[in-house]
Design a protein around this nucleic acid. Sequence first.
DNA 1: AGTAGAATAGTAAGCGCTTGCTTTTAATTT
DNA 2: AAATTAAAAGCAAGCGCTTACTATTCTACT
Lengths: 335, 335
Amino acid sequence: MITIKDIAKRVGVAPSTVSRVLGNKADFYTAETVEKVRTAARELGYKKNQSAAELVKQHSNVIAAVVSSVKTNFAGEIIEGIQKEAAEYGYKLIIVYSHSADPVEQRSALMTVIERPVMGILLLSMALSDDNLTLLKESQIPFCFLSMGFDDERPFISSDDEEIGYRATKYLVDKGHRHIGFAGLDQYPNTGRLRLAGYKKALAEVSVTPEEYWVQSGDYSYESGLKAMQQYGGKTDLTGVVAASDMVAIGVLNQAHLFGMRVPDDLSIIGIDGTEMCEIVQPQLTSVSQDFYKMGVAGVQRLRQLDLKDQSVKNKQEFVPIKITERGSVSPSLN
Amino acid sequence: MITIKDIAKRVGVAPSTVSRVLGNKADFYTAETVEKVRTAARELGYKKNQSAAELVKQHSNVIAAVVSSVKTNFAGEIIEGIQKEAAEYGYKLIIVYSHSADPVEQRSALMTVIERPVMGILLLSMALSDDNLTLLKESQIPFCFLSMGFDDERPFISSDDEEIGYRATKYLVDKGHRHIGFAGLDQYPNTGRLRLAGYKKALAEVSVTPEEYWVQSGDYSYESGLKAMQQYGGKTDLTGVVAASDMVAIGVLNQAHLFGMRVPDDLSIIGIDGTEMCEIVQPQLTSVSQDFYKMGVAGVQRLRQLDLKDQSVKNKQEFVPIKITERGSVSPSLN
DNA sequence: AGTAGAATAGTAAGCGCTTGCTTTTAATTT
DNA sequence: AAATTAAAAGCAAGCGCTTACTATTCTACT
């Protein structure tokens, strides 16, 4: 293995000089030295040993993203945002996967990144167990949750889930719909509950109280959508459905088609997320779109501030604006 | 920061002992010592500094996957396979993204993993530039390309692209189709050329020479499928289409629908990849399915052999079996 | 009781790099 | 030409861990 010592010997300078040249420390050497060192490094095929550097610096320019493999597929967009913004500041990105559910696997993933001096940790749609959250906090490494909100103190950047539920429902209400289902959301965590609250609020504004069967829970998956629509049945009195995710929406859509219903004429559907999936089905799905890319960008900025010792954002909880993207799956109610 | 020295002091043993206990080195200490050390570690909230360990060991149990953000979405399955198999052997997985096209970004991604002593590198659908391939080889780190074949010496695990093209086409031929298009593949790299060769071979067997317009190139994206079908037109004499990817197939499908054609009655479509996308469209897409999960598993095994100094697999090029998954997008030709 | 030999534990070197401090060299001033 | 100062390079410690080697116990057998 080629080390800075080898370069130093070849060039005839001290290792410290090589280190400084390669590290671009200003005002320490002549242009000539720089040239010689760089050349030698190239010729010898030198590769920096980051482990050694990180050991002494106790710091690195690596951002770690911990991603849960979720049913719905928006992680890619967040990562694009992270990647882009990270590159802007010269940060590198490494990603580790962990199934959201299993605390043991979560822990393993966390450990992978905590055991090295990463500059910060971004957690994408991860519902960390209490133990693991403690672990994370104790590590002293800056972190921020992305795309998922919480009702405790921890820092996150996400959409406002209640607003999502509200806006989606309101959109249908404004089109004249009154009998509106909500399909595929999970009741347990924050996300599902908040969206449901928004849904109820929008209905309450027009004095509608949802029947119990209007709300079909699930896990944001395509199958959940299928199942929800099966529950509603082919001659449901529902004229509109809010789907908890794009995949749920597609499930609802396909099952509706299977029932011989036409969308949007017989049934209006609005999805949540606004991923590219919305555009590859027919009709294309109208959706409440989350700005995942921006979450990624904001996450990096957050980490950067934390890295710069700006403690004011330590536990900041931030919402990224949502918007309605009109495509073709909603039409005015005829009733 | 808590180090093994702190634990050693607290327990009253030497740091070396702590290191050995925590590293589970056999036959070096009493059960009592183990207990004390473990307890102290827990109580102090000790976290291993992997940088330090990797510095001395010049090795780690981390597998790195370099992933290009491709249009078509099978990387997830490969990663599942890697993850699963890695966990089996106690390896950790880190992933870095790189847009396949840009050599500079590729290089940055490669450097991120080369500069630390990862145990091996898996490259998912990455067409590395020559420079970067050299870099990779020089690093001495075991590596293997996944899901993409090459016509040079480098090691890879993928499907047999010629067979894919052949089997897909043959499947339609066997259903009586003779006028068969091939949509959305790129002509330039290995993959596209080989699949095309397979396509031509299957047609040649029934003495059909494809018209030039039958082959519509693209980039495996949904848009490519849309475009290809637009080229074919609503009253094409084609009765079947092989799509270069599932997304292309969906594009073809939707455009066909837009033309008022019925699938599979008016047009049969067979996709390539067999991702979950096949099941969320109507009709569901018959496809040549690649076993991406298995590629991931095999990749880890390959790395493991290399790690165990089994040089016999150094440049091994391996094919993973494909299969036809029949769904609903192909019907017999009526001609 | 003495001692060989196994079982445990300790000592210390060193992995490759960064960086505070010191020394040397060059440039500038008087 | 000597003295002052600035620029450039070197010295050396040390980051936290592993491991070959050495030292100390403990056990068991003559």
